[in-house]
Design a protein around this nucleic acid. Structure first.
Length: 433
RNA sequence: GUGGCCGUAGCUCAAUUGGUUAGAGCACCGGAUUGUGGUUCCGGGGGUUGCGGGUUCAAUCCCCGUCGGUCACCCCA
């Protein structure tokens, strides 16, 4: 039995690597349009970077061990603590707002399932130092623009958006005790996946009265227009309603309004989100969330750095790859090769001529392959074909009166050929860039 | 951590309700006598039927365990 990779880990053969490279390139291409700068940190971190805020139970989902210097360490399961440290260390010096992105490989020890492995790459885009909702709109716009970069449309992907502060305002307005908010969040998060009476029981157990329970149960269906109509004048919620309206207006001006759905059931598991949160889903609901993020204004301070407003999102390569593959949007990658060089005869001199011309072509920036041992003409053409060469160069043994070698330039698809001298050929190459 | 389904060649699948030496297509490699094209033809390499035990005269097939895959739950920092 040939060895396999560890469970949940992937080998990237050239075909898969090409797909991964395509995803990374698209991420970078779009994110740079929004003027974000790329950074990275260590893939291995001190264990307590992750246990300090999250507690010891998180260790069960970490790849952690003690290194040879007796240091408890862990493979990074997320980028945020590293990011917080890096920003915190230069908090005063960095130009604000900080606009950074990274594509780390992250690790988590848990059972694999659809869209979830033990290792994945995750685009992280963050903004630090800006409290205005314009930054929230900008962040959402990048995420959505990335979808467009992959050829997806507003019919393929929905951006479901909520706002913790707005939600809290509504709960306050309805006199729902703050001690019950965590349970309300949990119920909202599961609203679509959990029977209504179960949700209802949980809310009642948390101390909500009947009208409060039905209010929460109905929140999942509320549009922003309904919220605005009902709470624009409510003291506890008015400011939050106004701010969210501003956010929507900015998003519209940035061209992404048609992708957005207001959805109070978007909670995000993270306890640290403080404001607008969003997730990107495929419109048919067949996949996990493609992307998730939001505002976490208190986190940098809580992690021991300078307290600054911050927001960001993560987008993994696994679900995204599954999704664009399923939609037929993953390009077919060919093993491109500019030239296959061969000789019409098989003498030792011919071999030297093949290598010399190959060298010249490579100096000119072309990708070139040739046979490592004597092969029949037909065999080489087949080999050139399989290698994906666009042209085959056959060096002819017959020399011209001017002592110049002739080459036959054969184009494979569509089939065609021309014969010329080597210098003509190289000249031609230059003029064609 | 809990549960369902599934493991035969690199890939997709066969193999008579347990029966001889586990086959085919694709892919890969070589050949069709010094060669000018993708077709075609011939040949070859490749399997401890995931692994270990059990039942049986006999196991790819039935049973148990284990490992792996997959899907859901939990969780999603």
């Amino acid at each position: 039995m040939t060895p396999k990779p560890l469970p949940g880990f992937r080998d990237f053969y050239p075909e898969q690597f090409a797909e991964r490279a395509y995803i990374f390139e698209t991420w970078r291409r779009i994110v740079r349009r929004y003027a974000f700068q790329e950074y990275d940190g260590p893939p291995l971190e001190p264990l307590d970077l992750y246990t300090q805020k999250s507690g010891e139970e998180i260790v069960t989902q970490l790849y952690n061990f003690v290194d040879k210097g007796d240091r408890p360490v862990a493979m990074r399961p997320e980028m945020t603590p590293t990011f917080a440290r890096m920003v915190g260390a230069r908090a005063q010096a960095l130009r604000k707002p900080v606009r950074w992105f990274t594509i780390p490989q992250l690790f988590r020890y848990e059972r694999t399932q659809k869209g979830r492995l033990r290792e994945h790459y995750q685009l992280n885009v963050d903004i630090v130092g800006e409290a205005d909702v314009m930054a929230d709109a900008e962040l959402l716009a990048v995420a959505i623009d990335i979808m467009r970069g992959f050829g997806l449309t507003a019919d393929d992907v929905r951006a479901r958006v909520s706002d913790r502060r707005l939600l809290n305002g509504l709960l306050t307005h309805h006199a729902i005790d703050e001690a019950a908010w965590a349970e309300v969040y949990a119920v909202l998060d599961k609203l679509a996946r959990q029977p209504r009476d179960v949700s209802s029981e949980k809310l009642a157990a948390a101390g909500l009265n009947m009208s409060q329970v039905s209010l929460v149960l109905d929140m999942g269906a509320m549009t922003f227009d309904q919220v605005r109509a009902a709470y624009a004048e409510a003291p506890a919620a008015a400011a939050h309603v106004a701010r969210f309206a501003e956010y929507v207006a900015h998003a519209e001006a940035l061209g992404v309004a048609s992708w957005i759905s207001f959805d109070l059931t978007i909670v995000r598991g993270l306890a640290y989100y403080t404001g607008i949160v969003f997730e990107l889903f495929d419109a048919r609901g067949e996949f996990r969330a493609i992307c998730g993020g939001g505002r976490y204004d208190n986190l940098l301070g809580a992690l021991g750095g300078t307290d600054m407003p911050a927001l960001g999102f993560g987008m993994g390569d696994v679900v995204l790859g599954e999704f664009i593959r399923e939609r037929g949007l993953m390009p077919a990658f060919t093993t491109g090769l500019d030239f296959w060089v061969m000789s019409a005869d098989l003498t030792p001199d011919a071999t030297t001529r093949v290598l010399s011309l190959t060298h010249e072509l490579r100096d000119a920036g072309r990708s070139v392959e040739y046979a490592f041992r004597p092969m029949s003409f037909k065999k080489q053409l087949e080999a050139a074909e399989k290698a994906g060469a666009s042209q085959v160069i056959v060096i002819k043994a017959v020399e011209t009166p001017s002592d110049e070698l002739l080459v036959r330039v054969m184009t494979l698809a569509p089939r065609g050929e021309r014969t010329m001298t080597v210098s003509e050929f190289l000249q031609d190459l230059q003029s064609n860039g």
